[in-house]
Simulated scan of single mutants.
Amino acid sequence: MFKATKLLNQKHSENPKVEDREVKLATRPNHILEIVSSHFKNKFQDEKAEMISPFQGEPKPLEKPITPEKVRKSFNSLNNNKAPGEDEIHAELLKYGTTLLDQTIADIFNTTFNKHEKIDINGGVLIAIQIPGKRKVPRTICDL
């Protein structure tokens, strides 16, 4: 038992081996990237999937509007020294922004959801996630 645990916990310095479709070992970093990217694209991207309309039904106000405090809490959870995404906005600009920025972002989100307007974030994705420790039932975006 102890030997098995020791073997499982050993650090393996060996790099993983990646083979192409002809079962030849890929050695060039770009070739490895291409093989791995293709593999996961095939696993997680469905080319035949039907696009879902972003907004359906009549617009109605949020039951609980997004507050500047929630926006600030979200900004404070960002990590420093990370490369910006496609929007070219560094996390530090949001994290150390003023209360005016918090209010402006909260207003944009509230207006967007109340009027069923699309948020254009240059190819990015806005994902609603469950707040840790909260009940596991469907909730509105304002609970984030």
Rank of each mutant, 00 (worst) to 15 (best):
M1Y: 09
M1V: 07
F2W: 04
F2N: 15
F2L: 13
K3H: 04
K3C: 11
K3F: 11
A4M: 14
T5A: 08
K6H: 07
K6A: 15
L7W: 11
L7S: 15
L7K: 13
N9K: 08
N9H: 04
Q10K: 15
K11H: 10
H12V: 14
S13Y: 08
N15W: 03
N15T: 11
P16F: 14
P16V: 14
K17N: 08
K17P: 00
V18H: 03
E19T: 11
E19A: 12
R21L: 08
R21K: 15
A26V: 01
A26Q: 01
A26C: 15
R28F: 04
P29W: 00
N30D: 11
N30R: 09
L33K: 15
L33S: 09
E34I: 00
I35G: 01
V36G: 08
V36M: 14
S37C: 06
H39K: 03
H39D: 00
N42H: 02
K43L: 00
F44S: 05
F44Q: 11
Q45S: 08
K48T: 15
E50Y: 02
S53Y: 08
S53K: 15
S53N: 14
G57P: 00
G57M: 08
E58Y: 07
P61I: 05
P61S: 06
L62D: 01
E63M: 07
P65N: 06
P65W: 04
I66A: 02
P68Q: 11
P68K: 05
P68C: 03
P68L: 04
K70N: 04
K73G: 01
S74G: 09
S74A: 15
F75S: 01
S77H: 00
N80K: 07
N80A: 06
N81T: 06
K82E: 14
K82V: 11
K82I: 07
G85R: 01
G85C: 02
G85D: 01
E86D: 07
E86G: 14
E88M: 12
E88K: 14
I89W: 05
I89P: 02
A91L: 00
A91Y: 00
E92F: 02
L94I: 08
G97E: 03
T98K: 06
L100V: 13
L101N: 09
L101Q: 12
Q103D: 10
Q103C: 05
T104W: 06
T104I: 07
I105Q: 09
D107H: 13
F109A: 03
T111R: 13
T111L: 11
T112W: 07
T112M: 10
F113E: 03
K115P: 00
K115S: 10
H116C: 12
E117A: 08
E117C: 08
K118H: 12
I119G: 02
D120P: 01
I121N: 14
N122F: 08
G123T: 10
G124M: 14
V125D: 10
V125W: 04
L126S: 05
I127M: 11
I127G: 05
A128E: 04
I129T: 12
I129L: 07
Q130L: 07
I131H: 01
G133M: 09
K134F: 06
K134I: 04
R135C: 01
K136N: 08
K136T: 09
V137S: 10
P138V: 06
R139G: 05
R139W: 00
T140Q: 13
I141A: 07
D143S: 14
L144S: 15
